[in-house]
């Protein structure tokens, strides 16, 4: 049985957050960080190893997607939003 260890989960969580914070677009960045946090929070109670593996693979898929999309977003940067300049 090749289960997903707690360390692996923590590590992918950190990776996802770190990558999500790199989105050049303010709205995508805010959404990605919020979505990752909420998804891990909502799935905290899962104990079934099969489910955990499924969620882990989904997180992995999203991590590679985010990395690709950060590159695309970087290619076509825009000016910052009003709200980013206020903060």
């Amino acid at each position: 049985m090749s289960g997903v260890s707690k360390r692996q989960i923590l590590s992918i969580y950190k990776f996802l957050i770190r990558e999500a914070e790199k989105f050049p677009n303010y709205n995508f960045r805010a959404y990605a960080v919020r979505r990752v946090k909420d998804a891990f929070h909502d799935n905290k109670g899962i104990t079934d190893p099969k489910q955990i593996k499924k969620q882990y693979d989904f997180a992995m898929e999203n991590l590679t997607m985010i990395r690709r999309q950060i590159i695309v977003g970087d290619l076509y940067r825009t000016d910052k939003l009003v709200i980013e300049n206020v903060q």
């Binding site: 709205n27 997607m65 999309q69 825009t78 910052k80 939003l81 009003v82 980013e84």
Partner: peptide, 26 residues
């Protein structure tokens, strides 16, 4: 007093393409 691109509050007119959608399209 503020400058920068305006905030988007017109989601009924159109919505931005979700990065996940673009990733599937590319």
């Amino acid at each position: 007093e503020d400058f920068g691109r305006p905030l988007y509050f017109d989601a009924q007119a159109t919505t931005p393409v979700d990065p996940r959608v673009l990733d599937a399209m590319l």
